[in-house]
Design a protein around this nucleic acid. Structure first.
Length: 943
RNA sequence: GCCAUGGUGGUGGAAUGGUAGACACGAGGGACUUAAAAUCCCUUGAGCCUUAAAGCUCGUGUGGGUUCAAGUCCCACCCGUGGUACCA
């Protein structure tokens, strides 16, 4: 019988769909296991072989867990809101919903071809109103909550209102945008608008004004990378930094919990580290500096309180509120000029010339809190308003940025930390500052002689005791800006009444995304939604016109899968109690600081308000690597630079010339990408096909080597634009889905990025054919009912053990290898015994489910292999009767000998030394000692 | 710069401190075939030795160290990849 994979795969895919084999339902008799893939954005290009890597890996795990007796939840859905569909709509006028619908259909078709065991009944789409109802609902909960720092959790905003009306905010310790102070009387006298403004300061979803890149001509906000040198990349129109009112989420309130929560997760160290860095906790000290001739104090943040005696100037951010007050008359004009300049520099420009030191003196002086010396106050844009207090104490000797500033403005450089072995030297001769936290304190009064780390603690102690400041912690993490001036996203469930935002009630959800006549922003710069007719409540109050950003829909989708059709709740308590959270999450590491952080935050919030029972959404995380493509290049010869007239003339006469790979060094060339389908395994280009492929090659001249045109290669990202995409559909057609699945795993560790090797797939294809032949005879299965031999049992049980270990460790590439070895050994033994082939079939079922199902059925089983029992290995069969231990002599392995394990040490020694083989190697030398490791003899030391 | 992570044949990659290179691709040789495809067998880290049988030396980015024993552990350096950055 032939292995007809196309027929087999179609048959079983239909069987699974018809029988809903993978439908997951709550079953309290069985333990649950939740396997999830990061859901894809359905782009127009479809899937290439890189996309399914993670899906196949998680599918293998899901299928494995089912065989292990778990009730597995393995859903899939689509992150359907996003920019490409909107841009396509702007260009073509086609509604993004239609584009998205088509792309999803194509994705589902491609995913099903691979035989993934999803429960499609639980599919979610973020653009589906039944789904985004709960995205909007979650937003409302955030709006109605504040973060209480005392209990370290979110609480209902009504509790805060209650406290305000009774005792003001004196005793309130809550996360907020800026510190306010008011009494109960004041609160009760506030207008509705004033109350709303105060509460905004505390809500977890809040409106605030933040700086954006605004392009008047294009009528839209631009991202930093869309602005270069102060003008828009598209059109070259001027861009200004402008404050705009935006919704934000107060993720910073959860910084500490997001940090601590990482410790108990089974994630890779690198991704945990990326999140830790992103949160960026730094412990330090706030220090108050009095200002000469002013009542205000200047508060700075520092992590190096030990260097306080090394302060020689202060620097404020240009946006700092005190700048205006303290600038003296003589410096007003220059300071204003500097601030104006700084304001119009985009983030990108500031980044671009980091090395450029700029700044200006304000004329003001601060008083050093310990030495009482006067210290000049400068402003400079290297100090950012967004971090710490927007002001620093500058210690040029021990901070490289302060050092550069001091050099430029000829300010004193005071050395206070002396590294071990160094001598006190003239700081003005230094080429760079000494930033290291190692060394002893000098010139620092009561800190002298201490190590830096001790000095930091002692300095903070002193500062707190004398009321000169307080210990504090800063986070790099910023609140998440949640508004987008776009069409294709979730509408905010918000309307405005006399300028005060109100949320809709739960009964009014979902607030449907309206149809609009054009997807561009309006002429007045309003977001696209303001084009919608009657975009207001029944009472005529206008709705919010911004939409939510791309990550909104993915924050709680893993929770929604648990109960996707529930109309009355995000998830029922019953469903959540059973499914809890994701046990295995598979996806790319590019979401480390986006989706993975935001959804952890939202899950913690939902935990606080009692919606879910687990605080962390994803217990174990595997980050699959990217599969790269091999790109092919031809080398176009650069035309010599001549004057224009000649060039024009020659352009008509001269055809483009391309040289073969090994000849490219002889002239100047540009590499040009060509489609990989035009090239064979030896990099020989099919020139006739190339001429037909694109016009520019039609009558080009090709300079050959050995009669062939050889192209160059490079490993790059797989992308349509680089013509190096390998499409899974054609591979399934040619080799079958089971081969593709095995090969994607066999290619290397799932976590690692690696290039797609076009030829390697032959190997697993041959293996599956061999595997089939192990069972299949001429026209029926070739099975033997006899008892397996000891030898055969050993092969089988060793295989079971290895495969189980490998899957649990997620080492799926070695798992495939071990399976191949086992099958080859059984083939060699000509073993066709049913009692061996049956467990073998189950073992491969997670990897190659179609062939496993087919053989399973042919062996006379009448139910799907999906819920078969994963075989257990028996230690008895694994015992090595014939294991030969390696014996080294002076560290070099010389012999392998058998010996029993149960003898005592002296007997063993004797036996080893007298062994014929060993004697040969000893060559009569004296044995000094014998090293045993766990009763195995390992090394003999001789003189 | 900082943080993370990796460096093993022609290639993808295996190796709880204990036979480095499993498994696979590619390559070379052979069998079957009129031929091709498919299938099967042998060789395949480098070098040496031998008529043969067998055996030897060197080898996991570089240089040190720990150990009876190091791809694996420690120290220093070089290179690649990813993240991040006037974060005080």
């Amino acid at each position: 019988m032939e292995y007809n994979f196309n027929k087999i795969e179609r048959k079983w895919q239909k069987f699974w769909a018809d029988n809903k084999t993978f439908k997951a339902e709550i079953d309290n008799e069985k333990p649950k296991y939740y396997v999830l893939d990061m859901f894809p954005y359905p782009s127009g290009a479809g899937l290439h072989v890189g996309h399914p890597l993670g899906y196949i890996a998680s599918d293998i795990f899901a299928r494995y867990k089912r065989l292990k007796g778990f009730n597995v939840l393995h859903p899939m859905g689509f992150d359907a809101y996003g920019l490409p569909a909107e841009q396509y709509a702007i260009q073509t006028g086609q509604h993004p919903a239609i584009t998205t619908e088509n792309n999803i259909a194509r994705y589902k078709q491609q995913l099903n071809l691979i035989g993934l065991s999803y429960d499609w009944d639980r599919e979610v789409r973020t653009c589906d109103s039944k789904y985004y109802k709960w995205t909007q609902w979650t937003f409302i909960q955030l709006f109605n909550s504040y973060f209480c720092k005392n209990s370290n959790r979110a609480k209902n905003i009504t509790e805060l209102i209650d406290i305000f009306s009774r005792e003001g905010n004196q005793n309130v310790n809550a996360a907020c945008t800026k510190e306010l102070s008011f009494s109960a009387e004041e609160w009760n006298s506030y207008s509705e608008k004033e109350k709303s403004d105060v509460l905004m300061n505390y809500r977890l979803a809040y409106l605030s004004v933040s700086m954006v890149n605004w392009c008047e001509k294009l009528g839209t906000v631009l991202a930093n990378d869309e602005v270069v040198n102060g003008v828009s990349v598209r059109g070259g129109y001027p861009v200004e930094r402008k404050p705009m009112q935006q919704w934000s989420l107060r993720i910073t309130a959860y910084a500490e919990r997001l940090l601590n929560g990482l410790n108990d997760l089974d994630w890779s160290d690198s991704i945990k580290e990326i999140q830790r860095n992103w949160i960026g906790k730094s412990r330090g000290c706030a220090v108050y500096f009095k200002l000469k001739d002013h009542d205000e104090t200047l508060e700075v943040f520092t992590t190096r309180a030990d260097t306080i005696f090394g302060v020689s100037f202060m620097v404020l951010s240009p946006e700092h509120p005190l700048v205006e007050k303290i600038t003296t008359k003589n410096y007003k004009v220059e300071v204003k000029h500097y601030i104006d300049q700084a304001k119009n520099r985009s983030e990108r420009e500031r980044e671009a010339d980091v090395k450029q030191v700029s700044g200006i003196f304000t004329g003001a002086y601060a008083i050093h809190p310990i030495t009482n010396k006067q210290i000049p106050v400068y402003i400079s844009d290297y100090v950012l308003m967004g971090y710490g207090t927007g002001a620093i104490m500058a210690v040029p000797a021990h901070d490289s940025r302060d050092f550069a500033f001091a050099k430029k403005f000829m300010l004193p450089i005071l050395e206070v930390v002396l590294p071990e072995g160094a001598e006190v030297s003239n700081t003005y001769a230094w080429k760079e500052s000494r930033d290291s936290k190692e060394g002893k304190m000098i010139n620092s009064g009561f800190l002298n002689g201490l190590e830096v780390k001790e000095a930091i603690n002692k300095a903070i102690d002193y500062i707190e005791r004398k009321n000169l400041g307080h210990a504090t912690t800063n986070y790099r993490l910023r609140d998440a800006i949640f508004s987008r001036q776009r069409y294709w996203g979730e509408p905010f469930p918000v309307y405005y009444k006399e300028g005060i935002p109100f949320t809709l009630s739960e009964e009014e959800l979902p607030l449907l995304l309206p149809d609009i006549p054009s997807y561009l922003p309006t002429e007045t710069g309003e977001p696209p939604l303001s084009r919608a007719e009657n975009w207001s409540t029944a009472g005529g109050y206008p709705y919010e016109t911004n939409t939510m950003p791309g990550f909104a829909g993915s924050n709680a989708y893993s929770i929604r899968y648990q109960d996707p059709h529930n109309d009355t709740a995000l998830v029922s308590e019953q469903a959540n109690q059973y499914w809890q959270n994701v046990d295995l999450y598979v996806g790319g590491s590019e979401h480390a600081t986006g989706h993975l952080l935001y959804s952890r935050f939202i899950t913690k919030f939902l935990f606080d308000i009692g919606v879910v029972c687990k605080e962390e959404p994803y217990q174990r995380l595997i980050n699959q690597g990217m599969i790269q493509g091999k790109s092919c290049f031809v080398y176009r010869v650069k035309q010599p630079q001549t004057n224009t007239e000649q060039q024009e003339a020659s352009a008509e006469q001269n055809r483009e010339t391309y040289v073969s790979f090994n000849l490219r060094k002889d002239c100047q060339t540009d590499p040009i990408h060509i489609d990989i389908s035009l090239v064979d395994a030896n990099n020989v280009v099919d020139i006739e096909a190339l001429r037909k492929w694109r016009k520019e090659f039609e009558d080009a001249e090709f300079i050959l080597e050995d009669g062939k045109y050889i192209c160059g290669n490079e490993v790059e990202k797989m992308s349509k634009s680089l013509y190096n995409v390998i499409n899974p559909d054609s591979l399934v057609e040619k080799y079958g889905a089971d081969t593709l699945r095995l090969y994607e795993m066999f290619l290397g560790p799932v976590e690692q990025s690696k290039p797609w090797d076009v030829q390697g797939i032959e190997g697993v294809s041959r293996f599956l054919k061999k595997f089939w032949r192990l069972y299949a005879g001429e026209d029926s299965l070739c099975l033997d009912d006899g008892e397996p031999t000891k030898e055969e049992l050993k092969i089988l049980h060793r295989g079971i053990k290895k495969i189980e270990d490998d899957i649990e460790r997620f080492s799926l590439n070695t798992c495939v290898s071990h399976f191949m070895i086992m099958c080859n050994e059984l083939t060699e033994k000509k073993c066709h015994k049913k009692s061996v082939l049956k467990p073998l079939c189950i073992l491969i079922a997670p990897f190659a489910p179609h062939i496993a199902e087919e053989l399973w059925q042919m062996m006379g089983e009448n139910s799907s292999i999906t819920y078969a029992q994963f075989p257990e290995y028996n230690e008895e069969y694994l015992k090595d009767s014939d294991y030969r231990y390696p014996v080294s002599i002076n560290g070099k392995t010389k012999a392998f000998i058998e010996f029993p394990l149960d003898k005592d040490a002296e007997e063993l020694k004797k036996e080893v030394i007298e062994n014929e083989q060993i004697q040969k190697h000893l060559e009569g030398k004296e044995v000094v000692k014998i090293i045993f490791v766990q009763s195995k003899i390992v090394n003999i030391v001789v003189k």
